[in-house]
Design a protein around this nucleic acid. Sequence first.
RNA 1: GCCGGAGUGGCGGAAUGGCAGACGCGCCGGUUUCAAAAACCGGUGAGGGUAAACCUCAUGCGGGUUCGAGUCCCGCCUCCGGCACCA
Length: 883
Amino acid sequence: MSPKDYNPQIIEDKWKAYWNQSKLFKCPDNPPSEKFYCLVMFPYPSGTLHVGHGRNYIIGDVVARYKMMKGFTVLTPMGWDAFGLPAENAALKRGLHPKKSVRDNIDNMKRQLHLLGIGYDWDREIASCDPEYYRWTQWIFLKLYERGLAYRKNAPVNWCPSCNTALANEEVVNGGCERCGTEVVQKALYQWLFRITKYAQTLLDDLDTLENTWPKKVLLMQRNWIGRSEGARAVFTVESTGEELPIYTTRPDTLWGVTFMAIAPEHPLIDRLVKGTPYEEKVMEFCNRLRKRKRVVRGEEEPVKEGIFTGHYVINPVNGDRVPLWAASYALMDYGTGAVMAVPSHDQRDFEFAKKYDIPIKVVIQPPGKKLVVSEMTEAYVEEGEMVNSGPFDGTPNMEGIKKVTAFLKERGKGGPEVNYSIRDWLISRQRYWGAPIPIVYCDKCGEAPIPEKDLPVELPDEVDFTPRGQSPLAFVESFVNTTCPKCGGPAKRETDTICQWLCSCWYFLRFIDPKNDREAFSRALIDKWMPVDQYIGGVEHAVLHLLYTRFVVKVLCDAGYVSQKHREPFASLFTQGMICKRTYACTKCGHIVSDSPTVHEPCRCDYGMSLNDRIEKRLDVTDTLDKMSKSKGNVVSPNELCEKFGTDTLRLYELFIGPPQYDAEWSDKDIKGAERFLLRFWNAVTEDLERLSGCAGDYETLSARLLEAFRGGELKGETKHVFQETHRTIARVTGDIESSWQFNTAIAAVMELLNTLRATKMGDGDSGCKVKRYAFESMTLLLAPFVPHICEEIWEMLGHAPSIFKHGWPKANEAALKRDEIEMPVQVSGKVRGRITVAADATEDEVRAAVQGNESVAKSLEGKTIVKMVIVPGKIVNIVAK
RNA sequence: GCCGGAGUGGCGGAAUGGCAGACGCGCCGGUUUCAAAAACCGGUGAGGGUAAACCUCAUGCGGGUUCGAGUCCCGCCUCCGGCACCA
């Protein structure tokens, strides 16, 4: 092998070592130039990365390196979301203590990130399970507690029987646990919650400031999740006791149509009302059964509406109507007031319920041009119409009626306008071991008492049997539980639940700015220098959970004065990358996955007397689906072997070329060859000509300026001039593709085109030919550097420049050099291309018309036709309309 | 049901309302080789035509606006994602 052969292993090792030693990614506390905080969501240490994860970090690395070349002081930190269920479950599976397992996994993943050539300021590395870190997570808990935003209550919660812990609403997906899919059940427990509902409106409002910098999809998901609804409160009265029973409705215009009231089975009022009445036994039986019901699962049929009459009546505030009070399955305790005014005529749910239990239906909105007859209705009428049977509002259009009736309620002291949100408070207690202990103790005398800040962290004990068993494992550790009350000094017991890991990831980007601070969580002055995160990159699966929680916590920290109010939104720009997917094959005979991966639980064992690949190739009883890479599907591709076989740069190039980064992409083992071939051609093109290129060595900027001067002076001719201009066009295209929407695939394609052009062009051996060629190669090297950093560093050095290429500025395209002298214009006849003309780029319409008239094939197409109209779009196209 | 996103060659994917298919993969032919791989050169949407010139059709389906529509408007179909007994 000659020294000029492309050997990725050698040069990649060389430059990785160089970046490490020269601390290329080391970021000072005080930025010497405009700062750029580039952050990829920190991962939980699962153990190994596959190429799907890799894409994420590569994208972040491209942005960081590009911004560096643009002259920014770039902060790119990395750390580990090391606390929490996934990490603990992984440890349990391996039979290791999470502390050890997390450490192993971090080491391995860090190696893999190095392998991928991703640059981070590792001096800022943090792991959320380190006491120096979770000390401040606990501190944040206390800050919320102080502000009345953390509270404890006994309520039914979502419980995962497999993970043996309570879950937040956000962690319940399709009625199952987000992590393991097990059906979630309801369980009553004392739990700690954060009052995120108090921030619902500001969480909603501030989304407006992110309109152009966050994906629309994420904004929408957050808005849906917060679920603001505007309506009215109407206060009904329980006839027997005279107590008030308020309801929330978005349709106050239908108040006159109320024929019953539905109240949630969980509602405490029921217990009191039926006590000692003949209804008690049956109603309580019904309620107790419903209180344990499982959540509604999407995709499944709508649950049957059930209910039972409580024996009580309520009085309608607007017309004094006396209507029965029912306990009903479809009334939800935790939305509105837990009671619903039921208008069967104009609400589909109420309609179904009324039909089932034979409750009267009363029409109060009439559609335009029709007349509703109760006996003929098969569904509720929910469209607009005119109010009828509504006392003083008869004849009012119902949309107007909504406002008027709301005001009417307010005047009479029976309610008024009200806003509701569907977001619920955030449940943060977990009955598992691997998390930060909640810093609270319970004292017989003082009750609930927070741990003083100076006593933080409340350390998680190591010697614990952490098998999940439905109660926090810490509850069995006496040395942990028994303590003294920080208020009175008497005996007290510690809270034994741990904080869910979402809180750990709510503030890690603040800690990255000041990672070693042992006096405070972070310095406000440094936060002001570095926040916000200019570019946040991560998976769309965090659209609600992580991103909503984080926005909430940051707002609280702002309100508490630890972070400036100007940083209420921590992530100025958000990018959600698509997943890398791969085909998964399943056997149509046995239904199992056809794979030889050891991570597949029960692979297909049907014998076809050939290799699995051959069987798949021949499609023998196999179906395929495109799935996200995962161990359980056996479709993961490891970057390690690919880096070894092709080199890191090739892998990076392929992952970037695979498609637009915001979309999912299908992995193909074949296509990576294209990336390899391109790098090889690039390398060979430079090395083959190196001697000649060295003959005109010099500073890139000087060369660039000289050539531009020569171009302007008309000294560049023919193909030399062409290549010079194409180089400028490529610079413009690549820069545009990166800046506009991270179209790395087309940016790379542009450089490929330039290389193709260069290889197909015979430039003279003269001085300017050599210079232009050098200029083209140097520009290509700079343009490719963020994507394939190792090979570019090497070529940059070979071309006689001092490393690092990332200290060099990004190339600039010159407007004048982009302009073409002559252009070819297609000439259409009635929309079909029938000829081409070559004209000056700035040709006038008359000149174009003359050229068209002189064109033979156009003339031929026009034979026997008359020209109706000629549309000339200067610089683009000519279209002749002819009959 | 409601709200998003997508649908383009054999495949991944390009196209400010202006030549559809850039770039790459795959495939076909050639050069090189004892042979193969690699590399290099050429070809490659479909149909017709003579392997030329040329013609016709083609961006999920059906309409519309326009000199001109993958792109804009209206109505559908399919797939993916989110939300949903939220009053």
